[in-house]
Write a protein that binds this DNA or RNA. Structure first.
Lengths: 187, 187
DNA sequence: GTCTATATCACGATAGAC
DNA sequence: GTCTATCGTGATATAGAC
């Protein structure tokens, strides 16, 4: 792995752990093993490096979701697979956590990957919910778009509650609760 | 309002907007109109002041929830009222946002109010869900504890999605989705 | 209680040698 | 490409006058 790559990966980790405001160039240099000059050779500064890191995290998140939502099985099975995927609950979501970072949200360039990722995810999940309904797997009652937003919110909120409790099991409980509510609408 | 009070309120606002890491003593002094000496006269430092602010936000959040969950109406009506309450979606939850702050979570004193607030809220909501079930308002299917965690997660995650989209309507959609799923279990 | 002065360190970046 | 030196600013506090 070359230095540029190590800088991006170290920044990704630090943004995940400490957010944008809490991540200093110095910390990035120490984690990656790069010197001052090296970092500023590959990137114009902290925002430039953060953009590379955020874009990659967003792409990775979307790729995993798409793999599960367009994988094998019925629509309802794919939704269940996506929701039930094992996640590092106490670490939280590397993209979702950026929404709490005022400096990220204030910068249109840094903000765009975050916005697009969740916009895509809600739309994609709504489409699979609509598919489940069309196939007679789900009742006609709940609106697919609203249901999709609620389900994604359960995951994002599940991270918050798990961290608050310092207990990954709380995340699993949130997912269980969502699946339980969804089950009432299965045909 | 005396100076001590203004310091706490200013800190509450700043923690809400920028988090603990993003809030400096200087910013607190400027917003409150207090000088350096004044702030350090009333509080030992940033952590001490943050504790006062966090404890107050936690208490306020709990008070509002308790008012709705123990208010008038059937159990299901109270749950719906709690979930549907108007909230400043783009501002987010002043307590939930602290879970993303590594320095808050690393300090047991600062962490405790956050942990206790959500622990209490999940338990309290589960009790009202159990009440709704006992009263025949809700089907026996979903587990109250898991459902409660999922519902609180929808609110916390709704903030994340609304901020990601820069659109408060997304928060409302998440709540709508949750209410739609819950409706399927109403008797 | 509040003020100003001062101290120490970290942040985020630039300059220029190698 | 990477290194060290340096810079100006802000973070977080202490000291002591008033």
């Amino acid at each position: 792995m070359d230095m540029r790559e190590r800088l991006i990966e170290s920044t990704r980790e630090l943004l995940w752990e400490r957010g944008y405001v809490g991540t200093s160039p110095k910390a990035i240099q120490q984690r990656s093993g790069a010197g001052q000059g090296s970092m500023y050779h590959h990137f114009r500064g902290k925002p430039d490096l953060a953009l590379a890191a955020i874009a990659r995290s967003a792409e990775e998140m979307r790729g995993r979701a798409e793999a599960e939502l367009s994988g094998p099985g019925t629509a309802l099975q794919r939704i269940t697979a996506y929701l039930s995927r094992e996640r590092d609950a106490l670490r939280g979501c590397p993209v979702g956590r950026l929404t709490q970072d005022p400096d990220v949200m204030a910068d249109p360039e840094l903000r765009r990957p975050v916005e697009e990722t969740f916009s895509w995810l809600r739309t994609r999940l709504a489409a699979v919910l609509a598919e489940a309904r069309a196939d007679g797997e789900l009742a006609a009652g709940p609106d697919p778009a609203a249901t999709a937003t609620a389900l994604v919110a359960v995951l994002q909120g599940g991270y918050v509650l798990a961290r608050a409790a310092a207990d990954a099991e709380v995340y699993a409980q949130a997912v269980d609760g969502a699946l339980g509510l969804l089950a009432g609408h299965a045909q």
